[in-house]
């Protein structure tokens, strides 16, 4: 019996060793582009990848949806075939992330700004359209808000939209939104909550930390509900609950025009044109970042970038705009294209 188990163990470990040798071999070459990053950019990046795979002789790139932060973490952990070539992000890269990249031997990263995405506050089609100012959204959703005399902060007392402004409907405040891990939440907080809270003089008197807490903390008494990362689910919940509002990306509004309607924010409706010309206040740029070291090592990266930055893709009437991506203005497209063709290193203005 000793002999049996010994030979069995030898067999299994031999098999394991053989496996590992094979993996090491497989790792030596990779003939497809590996892309990670933001789930907001995922629907756009995948369309480009699919076209690229179909129209060229290269393999279709593999795209993982890891979130912007998770994407940079993977992207910056090293250079070599086992690390991704491109990461997508729904915000600009941070200096700390560039430093991390440099520490791990990734000296140069090319930035591709691919377009804009709007964030909408929408409700069920059958209910009246909301017209909100960002201050009002802040008052509805922050945990602590300035009191009526403007001298300090009190726990959010507002139950109904009409409590905030008599012109708003007398409907209980109920907003479904993404969890803190989501890039959409980051952008919403920055573009709506921060802008909204800075309109109040009392906020200016606070210390930096206290100000951030006051502006960024969402209320936890049931008026703001974290509904998960799945935007489709939020759309379905809005259908079932006509008095609720939901926060999600413009592409989901675009696909569900018959079910939900976007609220006007600061008097502007979330429409393709208003996001493109910047008059709709809640929009953010989307980016792809490319590891320059891998260009030429992994086949097809330059060709993929050419497809991504072609007028057929990101142009005014490109197929990405059909998916709800808001194109960059033409002059900006030209600047980005030049930087991409020259594989210029990203620089963050101080």
């Amino acid at each position: 019996m000793g002999k049996f188990s010994a030979s069995f163990v030898a067999c299994v470990s031999g098999l394991g060793a053989a496996f590992i040798v094979q993996f090491a071999h497989a790792q030596a070459a990779r003939d497809y582009i590996s892309i990670v990053g933001s789930s907001t950019v995922y629907p756009f990046s995948t369309v480009v990848a699919e076209r690229f795979g179909r129209t060229t002789d290269f393999s279709t790139p593999k795209i993982e949806s890891t979130g912007s932060g998770g994407g940079f973490k993977l992207f910056c952990s090293g250079a070599g075939v086992q690390y991704p070539d491109i990461t997508n992000s729904s915000r600009r890269v941070r200096q700390s992330e560039i430093d991390e990249c440099t520490r791990n031997g990734i000296a140069e990263v090319v930035e591709v700004k691919i377009g804009y995405d709007g964030i909408v506050l929408a409700n069920f089609k059958g209910a009246p359209i909301y017209r909100l100012a960002r201050e009002q959204i802040y008052l509805a959703l922050a945990k602590d808000v300035p009191d009526s005399t403007g001298s300090g902060l009190i726990p959010n007392p507002y139950e109904s939209w009409a409590d905030i402004d008599a012109g708003l409907p007398d409907v209980r405040i109920e907003v479904l939104g993404p969890p803190p891990t989501s890039g959409t939440r980051d952008a919403f907080v920055e573009l709506v909550m921060l802008a909204g809270c800075e309109a109040f003089p009392v906020i200016e008197t606070l210390a930096d930390d206290a100000r951030d807490t006051a502006c960024f903390t969402m209320r936890e008494d049931g008026a703001f509900i974290e509904a998960g990362e799945n935007d489709n689910l939020i759309v379905q919940k809005l259908e079932a609950n006509p008095s609720a509002l939901g926060i999600f990306g413009f592409s989901f509004l675009d696909q569900n025009q018959d079910k939900v309607q976007g609220s006007l924010i600061d008097g502007v409706a979330p429409e393709f044109d208003s996001i493109a010309d910047g008059s709709y206040p809640v929009s953010r740029p989307l980016y792809s970042y490319v590891k320059k070291l891998h260009v030429g090592e992994i086949p097809g990266i330059e060709e993929f970038l050419a497809e991504l930055t072609s007028e057929a893709a990101w142009g005014d009437f490109g197929y990405l705009s059909d998916r709800g991506l808001i194109p960059l203005p033409q002059t900006e497209r030209r600047t980005v294209l030049e930087a991409v063709q020259g594989l210029e290193n990203v620089t963050l203005s101080p």
Binding site: Y32, Y42, E50, G53, S59, T60, K62, E64, S65
Partner: peptide
């Protein structure tokens, strides 16, 4: 382990 990915091929 990265298997939540867009795979065409």
């Amino acid at each position: 382990i990265g298997m939540v990915a867009f795979i065409v091929d």
